[in-house]
C-alpha cells in the first residue's frame, strides 16, 4: 500500500509563499506548522508575525494571527498570553526585528518568563528593505550599507541572541539550530517542538534561533548560500541548546 510519508502540514494554508527562490524561511514555516500539527494545537494557537520578510506570515499559518509593528511582537504576544493564558502563543521574527529594533521587547519578555515561544530567524541581513547590515551581519560581510564588509570600528560586532538571552533567569529554553541540510532541518524541528512543549507545560519563555539563508541579498545561488551559512555563520553562531528546564534534561 502506498502511504503518504511527506505532505503539506495542515497548519499551513494553501497560499504560495512570497519568499525568493531558495530562501529558507519556507522550511522554517513548514517546521513550525508541522509542530503545531503534531501537538494538535492549531485550534488553540495564536501567532504573531513581524515586520520584515515574514511580514505576510499571517497568510501562511492556518491559525489565528496578529501582524505586529516592527520589533514589538514579544509585547503583542505578552498582551495575548496574559489575556488568554490557556492558548499557545508564538512569535516569528527576523534578525532586524528581534535583534535590532526589538531588543527591549525580547529581553523583557524573556526576563518576565512570558509563557510564549519565539522563532527567531537569523539570516545576517535585512531582506525586505534591500540587503542592509543587520545586527547579526558578520564582520567582513558585505551588505548594501557595509559595501566594503562590516568593519568593527565603524559598525561594531554582531549580536549573539541565543547566548545573550540564555543569561536571563526567565528564559526557560533557548536553542540555536540551522536548516542548511536535512539532518539539521530535523534537529531544528525537534528544538521548535521542545520550545512549544516548554510553553505548553507552563515552564516559561522559550526561543529557538534558526540560522537561515538569504540567497538574494547574499548574492549567491541557494545551494551556495547553504554552504556559506555552514562555513561562516555556524563558527560565529555555534549551534546547540543554550538553556533548558532542569527537569527535562
Amino acid at each position: 500500500m502506498m502511504k503518504k510519508v511527506f505532505t503539506r502540514p495542515k497548519a499551513l494554508t494553501d497560499k504560495p509563499f512570497h519568499y525568493c527562490p531558495g530562501c529558507t524561511h519556507g522550511i522554517i514555516h513548514r517546521l513550525v506548522a508541522e509542530v503545531i500539527d503534531e501537538l494538535g494545537v492549531a485550534d488553540n494557537t495564536v501567532g504573531v508575525c513581524p515586520v520584515g520578510c515574514s511580514v505576510f506570515a499571517y497568510n501562511y499559518f492556518n491559525v489565528d494571527m496578529f501582524q505586529a509593528s516592527h520589533g514589538r511582537a514579544p509585547a503583542v504576544a505578552t498582551g495575548i498570553k496574559r489575556s488568554l493564558p490557556d492558548r499557545v502563543v508564538f512569535t516569528y521574527q527576523g534578525d532586524g526585528d528581534l535583534a535590532s529594533i526589538g531588543t527591549a521587547e525580547i529581553i523583557h519578555a524573556a526576563a518576565r518568563s512570558e509563557k510564549f515561544t519565539t522563532i527567531f530567524v537569523n539570516n545576517a541581513v535585512y531582506g525586505m528593505t534591500g540587503g542592509q547590515m543587520a545586527p547579526t551581519t558578520l564582520l567582513g560581510q558585505k551588505t548594501t550599507t557595509t559595501p566594503k564588509g562590516r568593519d568593527k570600528e565603524q559598525a561594531g560586532f554582531p549580536v549573539k541572541v541565543a547566548e545573550m538571552l540564555s543569561t536571563l533567569d526567565g528564559a526557560a529554553y533557548v536553542a540555536r539550530v540551522s536548516v542548511h541540510n536535512p539532518t539539521h532541518v530535523n534537529k531544528a524541528k525537534k528544538a521548535i517542538k521542545k520550545a512549544f512543549e516548554v510553553q505548553i507545560s507552563g515552564q516559561g519563555f522559550a526561543l529557538v534561533e534558526v540560522l537561515s539563508t538569504c540567497p538574494t541579498n547574499w548574492g549567491m545561488p541557494p545551494n551556495e548560500a547553504l554552504k556559506w551559512l555552514e562555513e561562516n555563520m555556524i563558527p560565529y553562531y555555534p549551534l546547540g541548546i543554550y538553556k533548558e528546564p532542569a527537569e527535562v534534561k
Binding site: 509593528s69 509585547a75 503583542v76 504576544a77 505578552t78 498570553k81
Partner: peptide
C-alpha cells in the same frame, strides 16, 4: 511594561484577543 512602546503593543495584543 518595559516602556510605553511595549505597553501600547501589549494593549494591541490584549485588544486583538
Amino acid at each position: 511594561a518595559e516602556s510605553e512602546v511595549s505597553a501600547i503593543n501589549m494593549v494591541y495584543g490584549a485588544a486583538g484577543a
